[in-house]
Design a protein around this nucleic acid. Structure first.
Length: 762
DNA sequence: CTCCTCCCTTTTTTT
DNA sequence: AAGGGAGGAG
């Protein structure tokens, strides 16, 4: 017998849920109920009697995991749903690494380095090696190291890989391997893992310890992966190993929504699933339940321009919906005002909430103008991503104290707080300490804790101050086992002097910082309460809190407050979300698509998928906007409309569109250089031949058939899809729709009012 | 050692 | 536009 909740699914969805055993791939078009399938599948497994602890479900954000658990609870009312292993790759595997850390030579409470920590280590390595910091640029090196780790290449393999070496030579940085090696050593010495290490080390663990592998293969009898198109090689391999025994792997994804190639996502993972798991079942979810016909059609008309994709036809039974609007602005301020106005207007006309709206953009920097405009219109908003709470200086400082108490080997944490608040330990001392630590290949902490016993050459005043600092940390370390996380955190906040330092700063920023410290402490309390609830009364340690915080995604921040707010976020952040009203702003060449992603077809196609993701977030109304000029890098530049705008089927827009033929040109305003001479800068596209995209030319009004004249069996022509045969017609008046078989394209559902079909004589 | 100022670079997206 | 680094003064 099947549980009643399955009746809420369509046939394909149901199949994707009940085929629990053996490998399954679900190709899910945008808005086709992907999350629903995943949720129901887990619920169904539990319903069938699978122990929730035997299920591993990897989601894209921790928030998604939390929501999914709640939903499962509602579906099956089983209180054990929270013991499903569910979360992001990083958070789930950090948890496992914590349990198995000693097998890899790490302490139980290893630190997790965020990007800033990693960059800081790299920077100090480059300095210590006396490499040119301009050439050995931290960001680039971190990228190289990161992609090496994602492909399970350790420093030795990196050094011996001819292709990598020739790439590095080509970029004039032939010695990156040395930096990588030293970076690797220093992280290890600090008992720290960076984001990539979490996945690398899990692979190492499963590879080197067959008993551990078997343990987890037996534990995770069912594994599910969301957003499979965005997994990298390390993630792919982990799943492959874990599922090798049971073969009960279910991956869900959409190649058209793969937008993370820049961080190593490998689209081959989803394309090769069939080869990796012979006998796998594939389910295609193609019916979109989210968006209007126009929005689906717009998304489809954009994505067909990509050459590499799996065949999939997303369609919907929803209404045609409103036309897509296009706003043209003079500059970014003007654009923001137009958008804010449009929001205000729709809000008043249709009595909508702020939370019905989302404004999306390509880069975080674009939020500023939009925020100003929204404030002017008195529309409450919330900016996602960007500077996240846990990235603020004062918050990171406090967390660094926590880290140092929990893991004294953590050099980055040490250097961050040894002289904050100021206690007379300056650069000279810090440099000496770090040299000593490097010479002895020990954590700085080790030197400091033995400072009165080893010859260091510090004067007595410096030694005294260092010992005082050491004693502060030791004092809290002694309380780790006797004091709960919240209480200890409070003691550290005051005892370290942070609270006092911030309290004395009465400037508005100082007050905010003080409040942020309070928020961290409140956050720990909330975390502790939830943790106790979910873990049979067991209290979390400070290190549990740190682990959670360092793997926070920018979408995980809770929104407990009751204020009704519009959402502002990057398109990347919007993935997986939906909103009734969506604005996509800054649709200009060099911005969206990004100037960083225009050098190859693959890059442009990723930008196009990104635009596809953006469009498909909209449920009932989509508005696009672009500006003619925009301040970038502090100076004004002329913009041309994005090539993607031209790819949207014209008939879907509410105003005719006229773009200048000079698309692809973005010229900076002539700038005065220091000598007062006019300078010109051109971007590279200006010199290249610009390939014009193919336009679809709508028919003249007199060629288009009257809606009433169209009947089943008629041969028609569509501006975009070409020749086709009407299969049947349904609905009346405005909603009259036809299902048409197009030659070589297949069956499409069209709202006749907008389709502008021409009748062909047969 | 600390603080201040000036100058320089950097701007895609994120776990 | 904004943050980081260098260099100089106290």
């Amino acid at each position: 017998m099947q549980p009643t909740f399955l009746s809420n699914l369509n046939e394909v969805q149901r199949q994707a849920v009940v085929n629990t055993d053996g490998p399954v791939m679900v190709l899910a078009g945008a808005g086709s109920g992907k999350t629903r399938v995943l949720t129901f599948r887990v619920a169904y497994l539990i319903y069938k009697g699978v122990d929730p602890r035997n299920i591993l479900a990897l989601t894209f954000t921790n928030k998604a995991a939390r929501e999914m658990k709640e939903r499962i609870l509602q579906l099956i009312g089983d209180n054990n749903a929270h013991s499903v292993w569910m979360g992001t790759f990083h958070s789930v595997f950090a948890r496992i690494l914590k349990m198995e850390s000693e097998k890899l030579g790490y302490p139980h409470d290893f630190s997790i380095y965020d990007t800033d920590d990693s960059k800081s280590v790299i920077k100090s390595v480059v300095r210590d090696f006396n490499f040119d910091e301009k050439i050995y640029n931290t960001g680039h090196i971190l990228n190289r190291i990161s992609s090496a780790k994602m492909n399970l290449i350790d420093p030795a393999a990196y050094k011996n890989d001819p292709e990598i070496q020739s790439q590095d030579k080509l970029s004039k940085k032939p010695l990156i391997w040395q930096v990588y090696q030293e970076y690797w050593n220093r992280c290890k010495r600090s008992a720290a893992m960076d984001f990539d290490d979490l996945l690398y080390n899990i692979n190492l663990l499963l590879h080197n310890h067959p008993d551990v592998l078997e343990k987890y293969q037996n534990r995770f009898k069912y594994v599910l992966v969301d957003e499979y198109q965005d997994t990298n090689f390390a993630q792919y391999l982990i799943m492959k190993k874990l599922a090798a025994k049971s073969q009960n792997i279910c991956v869900v994804g959409d190649d058209a929504q793969s937008i993370y190639a820049f961080r190593g996502a490998n689209i081959e993972n989803i394309l090769n699933f069939g080869k990796d798991y012979p006998g796998s079942k594939v389910f295609k979810l193609e019916q979109n339940y989210r968006s209007t016909q126009r929005i689906v059609a717009a998304a489809n008309s954009v994505i067909v321009n990509n050459q590499s994709q799996l065949h999939k036809t997303v369609w919907t039974e929803n209404d045609g919906g409103e036309p897509i609007s296009l706003l043209k602005a003079a500059n970014e301020t003007d654009e923001a005002l137009l958008v804010a106005n449009a929001v205000f207007h729709s809000k008043m006309t249709y009595h909508l909430k702020n939370s019905d709206f989302a404004i999306l953009y390509r880069t975080n920097a674009q939020s500023r103008a939009l925020e100003d405009a929204l404030r002017k219109m008195n529309i409450a908003y919330r900016v996602y991503g960007g500077m996240s709470f846990y990235k603020r200086k004062e918050v990171k400082d406090l967390l660094a104290y926590f880290r140092l108490v929990v893991n004294p080997s953590d050099n980055e944490a040490f250097f961050r707080v040894v002289n904050y608040p100021v206690r007379g330990i300056g650069n000279t001392t810090i440099n000496k300490l770090s040299v000593l630590a490097a010479e002895r290949e020990q954590p700085v902490w080790k030197i400091v804790s033995e400072i009165d016993r080893i010859p260091t050459g510090f004067n007595s005043g410096t030694i005294k101050r260092l010992v005082e600092f050491k004693d502060i940390i030791v004092h809290y370390q002694e309380q780790l086992n006797s004091t709960d996380a919240y209480e200890l955190a409070g003691k550290i906040a005051t005892g370290s002097g942070i609270v006092k330092a911030l309290f004395e700063d009465r400037s508005p920023e100082g007050v905010t910082r003080y409040e942020n410290i309070e928020s961290v402490l409140n956050g720990i309390r909330t975390f502790q309460d939830e943790y106790v609830n979910e873990n049979e009364g067991r209290a979390p340690s400070l290190s549990d809190f740190l682990q959670m915080v360092s793997l926070f995604t920018n979408m995980d921040e809770s929104e407990e407050e009751e204020v009704d707010r519009l959402s502002l976020m990057t398109v990347h952040s919007a993935k997986g979300l939906e909103f009734p009203y969506v604005f996509i702003t800054g649709l200009e060449e060099n911005l969206f698509p990004s100037s960083m992603s225009m050098s190859s077809r693959a890059e442009i196609e990723e930008e196009r998928r990104l635009f596809y993701v953006a469009i498909t977030r909209a449920m009932s109304k989509l508005t696009l906007s672009y500006a003619d000029t925009r301040y970038r890098w502090g100076d004004l530049s002329f913009c041309t409309p994005s090539r993607f705008l031209e790819e949207i089927d014209s008939s879907l827009l509410d105003i005719p569109r006229k773009f200048s033929q000079s698309r692809g040109f973005q010229q900076k305003l002539p700038l005065k250089d220091k000598s007062g001479v006019q300078q010109k800068s051109y971007n590279r596209l200006q010199k290249k031949e610009v390939q014009q995209p193919t336009f679809s030319h709508p028919f003249r009004d007199d060629e288009v058939a009257d809606v009433v004249d169209l009947v089943a069996g008629q041969k028609v022509e569509h501006a975009r899809f070409g020749e086709g045969l009407i299969c049947f017609i349904e609905g009346t008046g405005h909603n009259k729709k036809a299902t048409v078989d197009f030659k070589g394209i297949g069956r499409k559902q069209l709202v006749l009012k907008f389709a502008r079909l021409k009748i062909l004589n047969s």
